[in-house]
Amino acid sequence: MASEPVSIETLRAALHLAQAGGFCSFEGWVRNTNEGRPVDGLDYEAYDALATKEGERILDEAMARYDISHAVAMHRTGSLNVGDVAVWIGVSAPHRDAAFRACRYIIDEIKHRVPVWKNERYLDGDTQWVACHHTHRPHEHEHDHGSCNHNH
């Protein structure tokens, strides 16, 4: 969890390892609409201790499940504007397939398990709190992407 913007290059640097032949990343950005409503920005809140612990558990699971060299994840908290990076995942691996699969696994598990809530700020001045979780994960089966307001 990060309450301030984080350097993507710093996160990425930890993944540039000699044994890794490939790198895959995912960025989720705050977009300007959600479910047809114009959005001005978002406020993210998290139960930090549990979110950090669960995030570390997800990264450990990805390391055990896929043939990857290293994985890094970051989810923002606080006030974000349209276009800001809300979540960043990076994975390095000897081969691309494992990097792609692990990256997808990590973001899907974060969306499903990490306690993060968002308060959408709409252009009309209204706000709405939304749990930022999904009920299904694509590595298990197809699903709707739900209402969390960043691309994933």
Rank of each mutant, 00 (worst) to 15 (best):
A20W: 04
N81C: 15
A49S: 12
W29Q: 12
T33V: 09
D60H: 13
R137E: 08
G21N: 02
I110H: 02
D126K: 12
V87Y: 03
P115N: 08
I110W: 05
N32I: 04
S79E: 15
S7A: 03
A73D: 06
A51M: 07
A71S: 10
S69D: 11
R104G: 15
F26D: 01
W88V: 06
G83L: 05
C24A: 13
G55L: 09
V85N: 05
R96H: 13
A73C: 15
G90R: 01
M63L: 15
R137K: 14
L11S: 06
C148H: 06
A93T: 08
N34D: 10
S25Q: 08
E27G: 01
G36A: 07
C148D: 06
R31D: 04
V87R: 01
N81D: 14
Y44F: 08
L123N: 13
A86M: 06
E35R: 12
R12T: 11
E56I: 07
S69I: 07
T135L: 14
R96M: 15
E9R: 08
R65M: 14
H152W: 10
E109G: 01
S25Y: 01
L80K: 05
E45R: 13
D48W: 04
E45F: 01
E27H: 07
H16Q: 15
V116I: 15
V6Q: 11
L50N: 10
H95F: 14
T33F: 12
E35L: 13
D126W: 05
Y44N: 00
R65A: 10
D124R: 03
A73K: 03
E27Y: 03
D124Y: 06
G21A: 05
A2E: 12
M74I: 13
D67K: 14
E140S: 08
R121I: 09
L59Y: 00
S7V: 00
A93F: 06
